[in-house]
Amino acid sequence: MRRREFTLLMAPSLLVMVGLLVVPLVRTIQWSFQKVQYGTPGEFIGLKNYSQALSDPRFGRAVLFTLLLTVVVTVAILVLGYLVATGMNGLGKLRPVVLGAMLVAYVLPNVVGAVSFSWLVDENFGGVVNYVIHALTGADVLWFTETWPNRILLIAHTVWHLLPFSMLMILAGLQGVPAELREAAKIDGATAWTTHRYVIIPTIRGVLGFVCLITIMDVLRTFDSLIPLSPQADAIGNESIMLYVFDVAFRNGSQQLGLGSAINVLSILLILACLFPFIRGLLKEAKAKA
């Protein structure tokens, strides 16, 4: 393909992405060094926003909580996703039905799913889960106002939302495992456990890594679900980094745009650090192909 043709075909998309992604991103980096409000030119203050963010205990809490959520959800998603996908792989005619039912949680707007999810445990909405727990144990769980019950709720919701994706990816991986490999393992006398452990899981390692990566990325920027599921997030220590940015830089006319931008830049660095192994792999691959 000639160079001119290539440029012509790429131009519209490039223009949109530079104008609406790169320019705003540069703006955020600029703002992070400024004391600034919407619509006014900022004043350069060096690294003050960064030192303010890093010394704010609320930022530390948000980072720790977000990392906790990420780790727990990622592990749960991989284990549950693998189990469900293995079951699905052996499923015949029922597969489209089960798949369809599961995909709903993934395809629906996350915030709407979270609202529906919250009603299962909301006393004001009949709270069927509370009712069952009370009937079984006599305990009343404060899902929205106590730290750990609220964390369990948030973890459950995030797993619920992301499980379909992980299951689907792993299922696609499982379908690529050659039948000969399973048969060979069986002939060699492998039990179900050893077959999974030493044959199937190593074969689909790539897919598992990818699911891991996407889950980490998605959970690190958790925001939507906290609005309905954790209305007092800050007070009970369950605030995510994104919610913290929202509070500082936008909600209720709050205008600490410089501070919010500094936190954004810091979280970009955090995300890049988490993605680093994967990025390195891709760059290596690119070099090999070039």
């Binding site: 705003p24 991103l25 703006r27 936008f250 993605l275």
Partner: peptide, 17 residues
């Protein structure tokens, strides 16, 4: 991937302005 993982606010707040 990088743009997908970007914290939304880092592009959306400037878009607001």
């Amino acid at each position: 991937l990088v743009f997908r993982s970007l914290p939304r606010f880092s592009v959306v707040l400037p878009m607001y302005e």
